[in-house]
C-alpha cells in the first residue's frame, strides 16, 4: 500500500486549509499559556516547531481522561438504563511523533482483544494520524530499544519526514492516509530518491526488548525493584502521560434520581489501585507496584500481544517528579 511522495512546506500549509474545509478537526502540538499542548489548530504556523513532544500523550483523543459509559434514571422499583454513544468529529492528529503514533497499537490491542470497546473504537475510527519524524531526541527517548525509531512508520497513516532541502517526504501508509491525501492530491509530488535518514535524530539503542523480557521471569524476587523505586513517590504521573498505559477506573456519579457511570484513567503505581474494601492490598509496597509496571509492560503484555507495551517516548521519565528515568532503569535491569 505504502507510497512515498513529497510535500513542500507551502503545500503542507495549504493542506491545513483543505482539511479545515473538509470538516476535519486538526489537533497538533502548539503553545498554550507557555506550555506545549495538543490543541486544535487551523494553520501550520500555529504548530510548535522546535520541540520534542507535549507532556501528555495523544491517547486522550481516543481514550479521554474521563468519559461516560452509560447513564440511568431511578424510581422506586424501577431503573431505566441509557446507553451512550460518544459524539466524535473526524480528526487529524498532526505532527505526532512516531513513538506516540505507535502507542495507539497497544491501546488497539487492549480495547479490542476478546471483546470490543465501542467507546474507544468510535473515537479511534475517526482519527487520521499524520506522524512527523524526529530530528531531535533527548535523554529520556529510547524508541530504538523497543522496536521503534525516529522515522518509524508504525501507527501513522501518513508519515512526514523533514528533508534537508526543505519540505517533507510523505509516506502514505494506510487507506486512511490515502483518503487524506486524496483530498488534495495536487499538493503532493512524486518522491525522487530523497534520503529519509538525512535529518533523522540519532537514538542509540540502550537495550534490547526481547532480551529484557527474557530476563524478567528470573528477576521477580530481585532487590533491584526495591532499590530502583526507593525515590518513587507513587503518584500516577508516569501512567497518565503514557501513550500506551490503559488501566482505568470506573466511577459512579449520581443523585437520588439519576446517575452516570464514568471511566477515568488509573495507574498501577497508586496504592489505591489494588486496595480491597477489606483493607487487604495485594501490592502494598511501592516496590511491588513499580515491579508490576515494568512486568506488565515488558513481560505480561509482550507475552500476550507480541511486543512491549512501551514505545520509548520517554514521557514518563520527563513527567516524573523525582526523575525515575525509565531508559536508565531498564538498561540496568537488562544488564543485571
Amino acid at each position: 500500500m505504502a507510497t512515498t511522495l513529497k510535500i513542500s512546506a507551502a503545500s503542507l500549509a495549504a493542506l491545513f486549509a483543505v482539511l479545515g474545509d473538509a470538516g476535519r478537526r486538526i489537533l497538533g502540538p502548539a503553545e498554550v499559556d507557555g506550555r506545549i499542548e495538543l490543541k486544535a489548530v487551523r494553520t501550520l504556523a500555529e504548530v510548535a516547531g522546535d520541540q520534542i513532544q507535549p507532556v501528555l500523550s495523544a491517547k486522550e483523543t481516543a481514550f479521554p481522561r474521563v468519559e461516560r459509559l452509560l447513564s440511568y434514571r431511578m424510581a422506586p422499583g424501577k431503573v431505566e438504563l441509557q446507553d451512550y454513544d460518544p459524539e466524535v468529529q473526524p480528526t487529524v492528529l498532526f505532527g505526532l511523533r512516531p513513538c506516540e503514533a505507535a502507542g495507539f497499537n497497544s491501546l488497539d490491542a487492549v480495547f479490542n482483544w476478546d471483546t470490543r470497546d465501542k467507546f474507544f473504537n468510535a473515537r479511534r475510527e475517526q482519527l487520521t494520524v499524520v506522524g512527523l519524524s524526529c530530528t531531535q531526541a533527548d535523554d529520556a527517548c529510547f524508541c530504538t530499544s523497543v522496536g521503534g525509531g525516529p522515522g518509524s512508520t508504525k501507527g501513522s497513516d501518513i508519515l512526514l519526514t523533514p528533508l534537508p532541502e526543505g519540505g517533507y517526504l510523505a509516506e502514505i501508509l494506510t487507506e486512511r492516509g490515502e483518503a487524506l491525501k486524496d483530498l488534495a492530491p495536487a499538493l503532493f509530488q512524486p518522491a525522487n530518491g530523497e534520503d529519509k535518514e538525512a535529518m533523522l535524530a540519532k537514538v542509540e539503542p540502550s537495550f534490547e526488548h526481547q532480551g529484557l523480557a527474557a530476563k524478567l521471569p528470573g528477576l521477580f524476587t530481585s532487590d533491584i525493584w526495591a532499590e530502583q523505586s526507593l525515590r518513587c513517590i507513587g503518584c500516577g504521573a508516569c501512567a497518565f502521560v503514557c501513550p500506551t498505559c490503559v488501566c482505568f477506573d470506573i466511577q459512579e456519579e449520581a443523585d437520588t434520581k439519576q446517575g452516570q457511570r464514568l471511566r477515568c484513567w488509573d495507574s498501577c503505581g497508586l496504592r489505591q489501585f489494588t486496595l480491597h474494601a477489606s483493607g487487604h492490598n495485594p501490592r502494598s509496597a511501592q516496590s511491588e507496584r513499580w515491579r508490576q509496571r515494568i512486568y506488565h509492560k515488558f513481560g505480561y503484555f509482550a507475552e500476550r500481544f507480541g511486543g512491549p507495551m512501551c514505545v520509548g517516548c520517554g514521557k514518563c521519565s520527563r513527567a516524573c517528579p523525582v526523575d525515575m528515568n525509565l531508559k536508565e532503569h531498564l538498561t540496568q535491569v537488562y544488564e543485571v
Binding site: D33, I233, G236, V241, W265, P321
Partner: peptide, 16 residues
C-alpha cells in the same frame, strides 16, 4: 479554571 482544566488527577502534587 483554565489551569485546573489541565489537571489529570495524577496526585503528584499530593504525593510530593
Amino acid at each position: 479554571q483554565r489551569e485546573l482544566e489541565r489537571c489529570i488527577k495524577c496526585y503528584a502534587c499530593r504525593s510530593s
